[in-house]
Amino acid sequence: MSQETKGQNHQPATSPGETSQAGNRLTRAWSRAAGSDFIWSFKRSPVAVVSFLVALGLVLGAVLAPLFAPHNPFDPATLNLMNGFSSPMQPNAFTGEVFWLGTDDQGRDVFSTILYGMRISLFVGFAAVAFAMVLGVTLGLIAGYVGGWIGAVIMRIADVQLTFPGILVAMLIFGIAKGFTPLEQRDEMAIWVLIIAIGLSEWVQFARVVRGATMVEKGKEYVQAARLNGRGAGGIMIRHILPNVLGPVLVIATISLALAIIAEATLSFLGVGAPPTQPSLGTLIRIGQGYLFSGEWWILLFPSVTLLALALSVNLLGDWLRDVLNPRLR
């Protein structure tokens, strides 16, 4: 090795291709190696590192909320109405207890409600994206590979849905579903309806991108070779094409996650989402909004900031991912 290659301490650790086989098309191997360059680009992007740490911290906080949270806001036994409206970091006038981020009207610790609220927000977000992804990827694969009138119908539905704002679609679905659920089950069902509503409003992105990528892959010769060897359409879609279109899917999934979290918050804020018995960040913001002008600003501010940090960090992470997986943009 020449002197110039030294000082490359951030060389990717696992990259078998770099050392073994000779090959004269370095540029092609370049893009292939994107996988192993992943960590490298990550370390070089402060935005990605910060977003990742913020997102990771928030997700861990939510997942481990029962361990972390000073109070369980859903356990009435731990609540003390006397603690109501404590200011952040100030001892409560009656009980002398100190709450980092203050308490709400019922004496619930805002920090704890945020941690628990994030659980709902993240659960709805992940589940909605998973649902949208499965639906969108499946329909996109079919539209792209089978094409014909089936593909045309799928894509027309997608086009029509795109002309409505996603949140409107979600509200519509939410409204319809609500009409069909019996009153006593509404709170219980609300979360699932929310997931389906948001999922249905977001599958289009997946379907469009997967369809486009599928049509590109379909024209490639490895797919023709598989057809020639008697592999059926299903086998080709799942075993051959799917692994090759997952890159863009991952990007959209991340960006959709941010959108889904915001959509959930919006719906809950409008009062059509998560019920007060299972408050998400959106529900907390709605509740907090009522106290803004009476001086209890912390009930609104902290959940809002958390939502912003969560959505922004996930979104920035998605942007970074898109740039890494698409070297042409660099």
Binding site: R32, K220, Y222, A226, G230
Partner: peptide
């Protein structure tokens, strides 16, 4: 009947191991 294509870069699935690629005419059936 088999076919060998022009573009050696596009005719192999980049996500498959070479062993699986070669065995495909047998395993696909």
């Amino acid at each position: 009947i088999q076919m060998i294509f022009q573009d050696p870069y596009a005719s192999l699935n980049p996500r498959w191991k070479v062993g699986d690629i070669i065995a495909e005419p047998v395993t696909a059936r």
